[in-house]
Nucleic acid binder design. Structure first.
Lengths: 192, 192
DNA sequence: GCACTTGATGCGTGACACGCAAGTTCTCTG
DNA sequence: CAGAGAACTTGCGTGTCACGCATCAAGTGC
C-alpha cells in the first residue's frame, strides 16, 4: 500500500482489483437488480480473468466487489477539497469539490441505479459512500481549523447530501445534470 | 403489519423478533468484535428459543440480526419529531426529538460499541441508521412544508450527525452524557 | 544470477440462505 | 361455538460461498 506506484506489483494488484470490480458491476447490471442472486462468483472471476479463489482474496462478498469502484471514488473526497483554492469559502469549496469529484466523468446511470436502488446492495452502497467521510473530515479540519467533531459532522452531512442527491438524480422525473442536483442538495445543509 | 396491535399474532411476531435480536446482540458482545465469526446461527436461535430455520425467516444474516434493535429504534425517528410541539422551531424540535429518542433509555455502551466499531458490522450498522431517514424526512416535510429534496437532505444530515455523535460518545476521552454530544453535533448542521 | 517476498491458484471443509412441505396456533364468520 | 382458512414455525434437502492451507509463479534486492 505504502509502496510507490512505480512498483510493478502494486500496479498489477490495482489492475486486478479494478478488473474484478468492473466485471462484477457489469454482470450485476446485465442480470438486473432482481436477478442479483443469479450472479455467481465464478462468473465474476472468469469475466475478470482470475480464479474464484483470487476473487475472494480481494473481496469477501459479491456486494463488496460490485460497489468497489464507487468506494474508490469516494475515498478521493479529501483530496478533491484540498484541490480547491484556499481562499474560497468552505461552502463553495465543498460544493465545487464534490461536483468535480462526482461529475468527472458523469456517473453511469445504470451503475449508480444498480448500486443505490438494489436492496441487497444497500449496506455496501452506504459503506462505499461513508468511506470518504474520514478523509473529507480531515481536509475540512485543515481548512477551517474548527472542532474535530464539527468537521466530522460536516463531512458526514455532505456525504449524506450527495447520497440523497444521487437518489434524486436517478428518479426519471428530474432529468437534469447531476451537478445541479448536487448544488441544490448541498445548499440545504451548507449555510456557513 | 397493518393489523392492529391487539392482534395476538403481531405481538408474538414482534416478541420473537426482539428475542432474536437481543440474543444475537448479547452473543456478539460476549464473543467480542474479533470473534464475531464464531457466533453461530444455531447459537443465536437456541438462545432466542427458536429454530435456526425460524431465525432466518426474520433475518438473512447475523449482521442484520445483531443490528435489528438499533434499526427498530431508528424507525421511530419520524414519530419522535411529530411528538414535539408544532410551534417549536425546526432545529429545536429536531434536536430534542433525537435526544429523547436516543437517550431513553441511555444506550448500552457495549452494544453500541459492538455495532459501530466492528468492521464486519459496518454496512448493517449504516443501514440501521439510515432506515430512519424516510420517516424523519416525511415528518420534517409535514412540519415545514419545504421542498421534498430539502427535507430528505436535512433528515439524512441529522441521522449522519447522530451517527458521528455516537462514535464520539464511544471514545473513552469524552465521557459525558450522550445527550450533550447529540446537541453539539446537531448544532453543527442545524442553523435554521 | 540467487535467495526472498508477495500474490495467484486448487482443494477441501464447514456454515449458511432458502425452497418446499408438513404441523401448529390464532382469527374470522356463519 | 365450531369449522374453514390464514399465518407462523419447523425439519429437511440443496446449492453456494467464505476461508484455511499448501503449492506455484512472478517480481525484487543483494
Amino acid at each position: 500500500m505504502g509502496a510507490p506506484l512505480t512498483d510493478q506489483r502494486a500496479r498489477n494488484k490495482q489492475a486486478t482489483r479494478e478488473a474484478i470490480t468492473q466485471a462484477a458491476l457489469q454482470l450485476a447490471i446485465e442480470f438486473g437488480p432482481n436477478g442479483l442472486a443469479l450472479v455467481r462468483v465464478h462468473d465474476i472471476a472468469s469475466a475478470a480473468g482470475v480464479s474464484p479463489r483470487t476473487y475472494n482474496n480481494y473481496f469477501s462478498s459479491r456486494e463488496e466487489a460490485i460497489c468497489g469502484l464507487h468506494a474508490d471514488q469516494s475515498k478521493r473526497a479529501g483530496e478533491a477539497l484540498r484541490a480547491r483554492p484556499a481562499d474560497e469559502p468552505l461552502g463553495v469549496a465543498l460544493t465545487e469539490a464534490m461536483v468535480e469529484l462526482f461529475t468527472d466523468p458523469e456517473p453511469d446511470r445504470a451503475g449508480l441505479r444498480m448500486i443505490m436502488l438494489t436492496p441487497e446492495l444497500e449496506g455496501e452502497a452506504l459503506k462505499a459512500f461513508t468511506v470518504g467521510e474520514t478523509s473529507l473530515a480531515e481536509a475540512i479540519g485543515e481548512r477551517t481549523g474548527q472542532d474535530g467533531l464539527c468537521s466530522e459532522v460536516t463531512a458526514a452531512a455532505v456525504v449524506a447530501a450527495i447520497r440523497v442527491a444521487g437518489k434524486t438524480w436517478l428518479t426519471p422525473a428530474a432529468n437534469r445534470p447531476f451537478a445541479d442536483v448536487i448544488r441544490q442538495a448541498l445548499g440545504c445543509v451548507l449555510r456557513g
